[in-house]
Design a protein around this nucleic acid. Structure first.
Lengths: 345, 345
DNA sequence: ACGGTTCCCTACAACGTTGTAATATGGCGC
DNA sequence: GCGCCATATTACAACGTTGTAGGGAACCGT
């Protein structure tokens, strides 16, 4: 039913290859012929069959984006940025959710579905640095996030250590010295939790503030509920603290909720800083000071780098590691007088 | 480089068609032959070429999901549910963002990209009921949301009027009579805003409470910022109210923020109810009473119905309209003693 | 021993596109 | 009028798969 090159060729009275040439902007075509073909295309409402094209050319015009879950706000906002970046470059995005499960992540790397895409943006959560070798797949792959470093592929990420250090310094600068950490992962060195914790310790060391393991709250995942639970346990434990560094915003929001439920004023009694700069942190009560990790920059760079690999003009260039710039976004949860341009406009 | 049916056939010493038959579970194959083929597949690491398969069969195993933006939390959570539902049925989801723009929505319906998918789940925001005819496309399409009714396609949606009525009744039951509405759309009859407003009016009428147009705040979109701005204008206008019905949760969260900034206690001075039951409404301060629209049910039904249409076994069945069940989720923003199981667990 | 049926397997064509190589046409210099 | 080059167009094969049609072999009943 849908028109094919054959149909167009018949109507325009040329060979199918000429129609193909017109569509692909092949230079040597007489203007009159070209016009006839274009008219025929118009008349029949022809659109190229992408399956056939991709069978023939090996390209689909689709890139994959594998991430844990869209219901985690950070990944929803990241996906939004990636889709927009891809759109600007004329490619479509196919999303795969791994649930952060290592087995599913590994499976996905060699799933036949992979063939529907020209390359993959991959944000692992369950795999770790030791699994880096599994990333040596036969297709263009760009890594996102903090689980794996020194892998065989390009890697776009944020300045975790430096940003976490800046966050901690921000709290220290306001005179807080008992800074609780919410969301640590037991024994993790590499990974968002491990790296951010390292930045925290660097800042403490630089300021000469002693590190107290009792101030670390461990959570398995980083949902709002984990932040709430961790904070409830903190309060029950009786450990004293005057600030909270939540390793991401959703943890911070869950923790703030519990703190206030328990009667603490923020930032009066406890200052809170998060990480990710989610949209909702501009509207929480209080608004949340956080780290803007440069999500748009990450997404745009990742898509660009992936498309370069797909185009193949980077050849066998060594894997690149690219870090986006971050900045501290100061809001009410660390300073009551903080400017709130987003709320007041 | 990747192995093909030919390679497998050569290794197993059978025809390519036999290999194809093994893969597609054709019944009449001798166990010995089958095993030889399976061994060859294993040995070569063969995976079927999906482009070729889809060229030949016309099926891709991918469904499209077109929605306004993943950065709108409702759609992120919906996409999550849709992807999980699709996954359970073995299909992949390709996401298109329309930005809620009518022109892009219409373009998308006939975009060549469409061919990468077997069917489309479409949640329009810019198109309206008058555009219903444009949905008469030549491929399986299932409509989501409230913009278009009586279109030529299956439609999965929520009980907007009834749910909004229940929300309003919930506020009325606690003795509130001056109920402000945040997020109305000027002149809209059909659409989430129009329908929910209708439910609001029905509840008022049934309770004998007069309708006051001064209590309606209009917004163009439904971001947190719109809720904040609308509430700021409300407060500036001096109109008296003792409750707020925000037409979705993000509006409610933005409005709550501004109300509290201005010194109002929730629910003491003003009760607030939202719509969507986003995860974050369990952790806001106060937690937000809202309508659970049955998102998982909507997603699962929509995917099921779409796959039925794709399989073609529903034939030329008349378009179906399917409504998910809703429920009122009572939290602190309307009643200080509300159970908060999510927070306390 | 014979025709019919079932089982197992194969050859071939087709899906719609694009790359390669070849052919037809015209202009130009000599 | 001939050879040469650039331009404009075409025939053909191929990408990897699956549907159709059909051909042997084995088995059945007679």
């Amino acid at each position: 039913m849908a028109a094919t090159l054959h149909d167009v060729a018949r109507v325009a009275d040329v060979s199918i290859k000429t129609v193909s040439n017109v569509i692909n902007d092949y230079p040597h075509i007489r203007p009159a012929t070209k016009q006839r073909v274009l008219d025929a295309i118009e008349q029949l409402g022809y659109t190229p069959n992408l399956s056939a094209r991709s069978l023939r050319s090996g390209r689909t015009g689709v890139i994959g984006l594998a991430l844990p879950e869209l219901s985690l706000s950070y990944f929803a906002e990241l996906a939004d940025s990636v889709i927009k970046a891809a759109d600007r470059r004329g490619v479509t995005v196919l999303i795969e959710q791994t649930g952060g499960d290592r087995r599913r992540e590994i499976e996905l790397l060699s799933s036949p579905r992979r063939q529907l895409t020209d390359g993959l943006l991959f944000s692992p959560l369950g795999m770790d640095n030791a699994d880096g070798g599994l990333l040596d797949v036969g297709y263009p792959l760009v890594l996102l996030g903090e689980r794996i470093f020194d892998g065989p592929t390009d890697h776009v990420t944020m300045e975790n250590v430096e940003a976490a250090r800046a966050a901690t310094e921000h709290l220290l600068a306001s005179g807080r010295t008992r800074i609780a950490v919410v969301g640590a992962h037991e024994g993790e060195i590499i990974g968002s939790a491990g790296l951010r914790l390292r930045g925290y310790r660097e800042a403490l060391d630089a300021a000469g503030v002693p590190f107290d393991p009792a101030l670390l709250a461990y959570t398995t995942t980083w949902h709002r509920s984990n932040g709430a639970t961790a904070m409830r346990e903190f309060l029950a434990s009786g450990v004293q603290f005057d600030a909270v560094f939540a390793l991401n915003d959703t943890l911070a929001l869950g923790a703030m909720r519990v703190l206030q439920e328990a009667g603490y004023r923020i930032p009066g009694d406890v200052a809170v800083i998060g990480f990710d700069n989610l949209d909702e942190t501009q509207y929480s009560l209080p608004t949340l000071t956080t780290i803007d990790p440069g999500r748009d920059e990450i997404a745009d760079t990742a898509v660009r780098v992936l498309l370069e690999r797909i185009a193949g003009n980077t050849g066998a260039t060594a894997p690149r590691e690219i870090h986006a710039r971050f900045r501290v976004v100061e809001r009410e949860s660390t300073s009551p007088e903080a400017a709130q341009p987003d709320i007041r406009r």
